[in-house]
Write a protein that binds this DNA or RNA. Structure first.
Lengths: 308, 308
DNA sequence: ATGAGGGCATAAGCTGTCTTTATGAGCGGT
DNA sequence: ACCGCTCATAAAGACAGCTTATGCCCTCAT
């Protein structure tokens, strides 16, 4: 209730003022791994005083001692070990971001050109790219995102070497292999009536209720319409998974989304899964390529990483 | 193969030079949500030119156009939508970090004092704290991490209101309720012989092989020793889950860890799960409190969030 | 004992980034 | 035609982080 506390929570955002920047977190991880400030500094290509000062400023910012300094090295405190583990999650997310972002740059010299549907590009590809980078560090990948039609088009016009789609059907002219299974699920904000519901929803009830949906033509919408016999009733139609999630979290109504998209939200209880019965909302995720042109080289490397 | 490219990948670290900082990512999320640079700027408490310049510098850094500007607002480009979703993962990890870090500060006025074992504090508590903050924004939580004995000690001396343990036994003097189930799993680096193994490991084989383990006395080690009859043979003993994971990832040998701890690593294929048969490596995660003092108020709120 | 080496802290100066203030320009509805 | 919204540009100030240059502490080997 103090003025400061009030403002801190009222501002709400300002995360970047309470969380050390990525450079600081990387430094902390290096200190944890190497057991020495100077060693960590060397690894990151900065000087020892810079590392010392930076760790100290993180400790000031967090209000917690992170490392025990001694004349023969530095070890994490108990709190420091916790903070370091939480920091690792941020850095891993940043690594995935980096792998994805590098692939988004249009480069003519890419040895592997991938085109993928949105959901796959958002939730699965960064991980695959990281794994690929670990195994084949010199493979330059470029990524283009689009719907199933776009994927087919770019593959057939030789603008891409490997594609990923999430629809019900495989575009003609393409061979495919199933690489994972996905389910659409119904979710609501925790405050919604359905959030407390134990008895599964029936198809009729789902079809009769206005839902927050992706636009017609999206892979997600295709599957839902097919499952309900083309009857899905939109409360609003939004053009991205993100917008649908945001609307559902804010309590606008129930939404239908891939379980890939809402893992985090379910874990944090920002959204609640509503049980459904008698409706087939499963779909396959597939890798695709032009008929007959079985993937070779880098494309084959990536494909082998996607096996679940 | 160019000089610049060479250096970028050779440095390897330097993540913070290729990924925008948290402030920039938050700004991008706000732009995506509000559809306007100026609106996002207002929400974050900065001026419109600052937002404009910052978004522009992110686009320069990533080499990709993120937003389509128009005289009546800004919308994300396709690439921008992808980048924004990847950015959201980073920001969510940062929110968990923040929730945890705030709880680590020692504050006398905390209305809820929690003491938890390491694994739970590392992997589950931040999410619970975020959910608690969402539902009860004014609950100040403080967190202390330690082993089972520490948890019991602090609860019984009234230094904590609610505890979480992961061992096989409940310390005497405490009541408990099971809040989740956990399994220890055997993992190796992808290059290890066991990584390609299909036939499950037997207890005898596991007991005969030197493993990367937590130190004796840790919850993880207790469960493993019990399951193998006290026979676990350490290749090395390390004092943190983190260190065990790092050793396993680097290929030092097979490790035994909670599946909570290696979710990310398995998804990114940095580690591979080795099937095991005939060994009971399950354990319960429990909330605990002094016998008779059933949790009330904030403690009860938190407890109700942990139900799986 | 004593000197060498590794480890950390402090001080001073520099540089770059991000910010604000001030202003201009495009588009749309009234 | 004007007002309101949007975004862009330019100039100047504030701040954070880095480097260089030291000094102290501890340990180990000579």
């Amino acid at each position: 209730m103090s003025g400061v506390e009030e403002r801190e929570t009222a501002v709400g955002g300002g995360l970047s003022h309470r969380v050390p920047d990525l450079g600081g977190l990387e430094l902390l991880l290096a200190v944890a791994r190497l057991g020495s400030l100077g060693g960590a500094a060397r690894e990151l290509g900065i000087t020892q005083p810079a590392a010392s000062s930076r760790i100290r400023s993180m400790e000031r910012q967090l209000g917690v001692a992170l490392v025990d300094r001694s004349p023969r090295g530095s070890r994490l405190t108990d709190a420091g070990a916790l903070v370091t583990d939480w920091a690792r999650r941020i850095v891993e997310a940043a690594e995935a971001f980096d792998a994805g972002a590098q692939a988004l740059r249009v480069r003519r010299d890419s040895r592997l050109r991938v085109v993928a549907s949105m959901t796959i590009a958002e939730y699965l590809l960064p991980g695959w790219l990281l794994a690929l980078r670990a195994g084949r560090p010199d493979t330059a990948v470029s990524l283009h995102a689009g719907n199933s039609a776009t994927v087919a088009e770019r593959l057939l016009s030789d603008e891409a070497d490997l594609g990923f789609v999430e629809g019900l059907t495989v575009p003609s002219g393409l061979d495919s292999v199933v690489i994972a299974h996905d389910h659409l699920i119904v979710v609501t904000a925790p405050g919604h009536v359905w959030a407390r519901r134990r008895r599964p929803l029936e198809a009729a009830e789902l079809a009769a209720t206005p839902l927050i949906l992706r636009e017609k033509g999206s892979g997600t919408r295709q599957v839902l319409d097919a499952a309900l016999g083309g009857l899905a009733r939109p409360l609003i139609e939004l053009s991205s998974t993100t917008a649908v999630k945001a609307a559902a979290v804010s309590g606008a109504g129930p939404a239908v989304l891939s379980e890939l998209a809402v893992g985090e939200e379910l874990a944090l209880r920002r959204l609640v899964r509503v049980p459904v019965a008698g409706v087939s909302l499963a779909r396959d995720l597939r890798a695709v390529w032009p008929t007959g042109h079985r993937p070779v080289g880098p494309a084959r490397d990536l494909l082998s990483l996607t096996r679940d």
